[in-house]
């Protein structure tokens, strides 16, 4: 259908704008990019302020597509749709977008409850500061997990923990 293409660039239209001008109705189809670039939504001429919200939702959707978790590929869009995240790393990679939601959900944003006995070495974000020895152990651990040698994985983990403890001392 012709009307479903953007009147400016001809791409797939995302917004239909109807305005009553001197008693006659004008309909314009726009793609999301053109609608933003050409400022089709000047606030004072809008018939409904609702459109402003629609626009915000539309473009926030566009931006979100670019943000995703580097470990599992989970996006904010996926989270909004399903209500759950993909992995622990999502809390790091999507933190900027999650914070406003968390503010609504929780009273405070600082954890003060129980902590695990000891944080495993992998929890620390950068491995750069670790000795080469630890990095190789970490790699071995990941390999063991991938190959499902969990007995070995536990042993390597214990070794790693011992080294971290020694460093701490």
């Amino acid at each position: 259908m012709e009307s479903l293409k953007c009147s400016i660039c001809g791409k797939k239209a995302a917004v239909q704008l109807r305005q009553m001008v001197n008693g006659s109705e004008q309909t314009i189809w726009l793609c999301a990019v053109c609608a933003r670039n050409y400022g089709v939504f000047p606030q004072n001429t809008l018939p409904f302020s609702v459109i402003k919200n629609i626009e915000a939702a539309l473009f926030s959707g566009f931006n979100e597509k670019e943000k995703y978790c580097l470990h599992c590929g989970c996006t904010m869009e996926f989270f909004r749709k399903n209500g759950y995240l993909g992995c622990a790393q999502c809390y790091e990679d999507l933190r900027g977008d999650l914070l406003p939601l968390l503010e609504n959900m929780q009273k405070f944003l600082k954890h003060i409850g129980k902590s695990p006995k000891k944080f495993g070495p992998i929890v620390k974000k950068s491995t750069a500061k670790k000795s080469t020895d630890q990095v190789s152990l970490l790699k071995q651990l990941q390999k063991a997990i991938d190959e499902e040698r969990f007995e070995d994985a536990v042993k390597i983990r214990d070794q790693l923990r011992l080294r971290t403890k020694n460093e701490g001392d």
Partner: peptide, 8 residues
């Protein structure tokens, strides 16, 4: 830590 969440 090492695995994706079960639902995902």
């Amino acid at each position: 830590l090492e695995f994706k969440f079960s639902d995902f």
